[in-house]
Design a protein around this nucleic acid. Structure first.
Lengths: 137, 137
DNA sequence: GATAGGCTCTGTAGTAGGTACAGGATCAAG
DNA sequence: CTTGATCCTGTACCTACTACAGAGCCTATC
């Protein structure tokens, strides 16, 4: 007997397969409140519909783009609100871009320091090592 | 009465102050084995000497340069060994530089994607938002 | 209709690299 | 001798997951 409202619902394993998301991560997203509590079969198995699959893809994409869970929650609040204001999304995105740029700057500085140090290296078997010296300095 | 071998020893709080390291982090480094177990006063208070302060500075500097704790342990093993081979240090450093460069590349790609998406943004109060659309895509 | 093996459920523990307590002991100054 | 700073220990918390154990369920085959 098929449920009269059932239209293409899937279980957790299939959702994981279709989205490439780890099985347990889906449960985790439910726990932290970014995924809604899904419907259940009589036996208690979670069932997901197309909307929920789209939401999960949104979450995964945002995470892929480096949005933290907190930033993601901000985006989802906007998505979930009736009056989605593009300006607010823009602000969040700009803030995130600024974060990313800062990280890039930091890493570039880091790379330069490391390269400079390691360029001095004789690479020999000697106990004199400019890398170690630089770390001790 | 001063201990006959005591020469400029400090306690954990002063070590933290002098190095800028968090107080608890020192204990943590001891726990994970990158800092040695220090001497103790009769009351059980940790005391550190100049060598240990230098070692902590080394650790902090390596962490600042983005070496993971595992990488750091590798460096410390070399430092602690009798036959410090600069070549090995060089290898570890090069591997780390490669990691850093990869992170930079990833973040640059990310920044480009985010900038492209957000450049399309009208920043209006409209419910049409290219950022959200891009995330749902 | 029994059974095998897959799936799902729950709670909990582990990862990196720390940070932050609580509750008690000790130390130094007044 | 008291007060306040420092120290001790163990444990919990943080981010963002991931992995497991032990149980229950579902379906295909015999």
């Amino acid at each position: 007997m098929s449920n009269h409202v059932a239209r293409r619902v899937i279980k957790r394993g299939e959702l994981a397969n279709r989205t490439g998301c780890n099985l347990e991560t889906i449960r985790y997203y439910e726990k932290i409140g970014v995924m809604p509590e899904p419907a259940r079969t009589q036996a208690g198995h979670r069932v997901y519909d197309g909307d929920q699959e789209r939401r999960l893809r949104f979450i995964l994409r945002a995470r892929e783009l480096g949005f933290s869970i907190e930033e993601l929650k901000g985006l989802l609040n906007l998505v979930d609100s009736d009056h989605l204001a593009c300006g607010e999304v823009y602000e969040l995105t700009q803030a995130h871009i600024a974060d990313v740029r800062e990280k890039i700057t930091d890493l570039r500085r880091l790379e330069k320091t490391l390269s400079t140090i390691s360029a001095k290296c004789a690479r020999g078997d000697t106990p004199e090592c400019p890398v170690i010296d630089a770390l001790f300095a």
